[in-house]
Design a protein around this nucleic acid. Structure first.
Lengths: 181, 181
DNA sequence: AAGCAGTATATCGAATTGATATATAGCAAT
DNA sequence: ATTGCTATATATCAATTCGATATACTGCTT
């Protein structure tokens, strides 16, 4: 798959600017499919505009820069459906945290603990985001399936991490004084 | 983290050629930390050789091409330990399969089923690899922790996938006639 | 005997990243 | 008030990296 298809997928839900697409790919709803940065998103939009797969509406915004709101066209929808029928590339999971954990005998315990806790915060943050989205999705939809997949995997990671504190020689979870907030 | 550190990590376990490093990063033991291809591995080794972080031993092999077996030096071990104390980048999980699942209303059911089954095969394959390694790892080691992490996450994905067949409108798991082999 | 797969090094054009430049507005702090 | 920071928004570019390919030899299968 390529950046063009990713953009078409995002635009199939709603019109968006390059900036908004970047945000969705970086952190938002679309952050677990393929990677993309400005350097690939803007050229993709320009190219697809020339190919008639998207259209632009230049929005003059009060107090903000000119915003180019891209929409998907009928030709774009067709191109998206075509791309959706190609064989997907294999999943990609990469973790620098696990790399450091692999060499845990070489790193100082204080660093390991800090990195472990940061990983926990990251995982709990992901879980919270997933659970926020959960309510607004119709059961049985593609959205709901993907959300459930994320929930299953992240929950499992959190559970394993919590169970592993001991064997990694880390102190038990501090009683979080602000758990009620 | 960068490719140089990844190579040092691999060489910390055993000497290896560029070719062997590529294999380990592509499919093997080191396939879930960071990405690297020939185009980055060979230059990294050349550079580290110049910096004294690795040494080469040119192995003339009967019936095979010349093999440059790289070993980590003391300076390399020190550089690795340094890199292990930098803050790790955030985990990266990308799945084109999930992208297609997100748009499942747009794809033809036959394609969805094929792609789903291929994903299942991939996941069961990963699990098998993880379980093969499992026995040879000392409990409490970094290796064992990473292996357990993978096991937890992949198991959860498989379980969720199996439970989701219904809601995706897919037929139940075919009674695999060759389950005994 | 041809053809393919595996081992092994190496390079290169094309694609992509990550950072930066530009511009405007709002908000906090000194 | 003006400096600095964050956010919105487009766009470019040097540097990196990928993915493919070239080269070369062996062994296995057809």
């Amino acid at each position: 798959m390529n950046v063009r298809t990713l953009c078409l997928g995002i635009l199939a839900f709603d019109e968006a600017s390059g900036y908004e697409i970047k945000k969705a790919v970086e952190d938002g709803m679309f952050s677990h499919f393929i990677e993309a940065s400005y350097g690939s998103i803007y050229p993709a939009l320009t190219q697809m505009l020339a190919d008639g797969l998207v259209s632009v509406r230049e929005q003059v915004q009060e107090g903000k820069p000119l915003k180019k709101a891209y929409s998907i066209t009928e030709a774009g929808r067709k191109a998206l459906r075509n791309s959706l029928h190609e064989l997907p590339q294999q999943d990609k999971f990469k973790s620098e945290f696990l790399f450091q954990a692999l060499f845990r005998e070489q790193v100082d315990p204080g660093h390991l603990e800090a990195v472990f806790n940061e990983q926990m915060e990251y995982l709990y943050g992901e879980l919270a985001t997933i659970e926020e989205c959960r309510q607004s999705l119709e059961p049985g939809s593609g959205h709901a399936f993907v959300n459930g997949y994320g929930h299953a995997v992240v929950s499992a990671a959190i559970q394993y991490m919590e169970e592993s504190r001991n064997s990694l020689g880390l102190p038990q979870k501090p009683i979080s004084s602000d758990a009620a907030e």
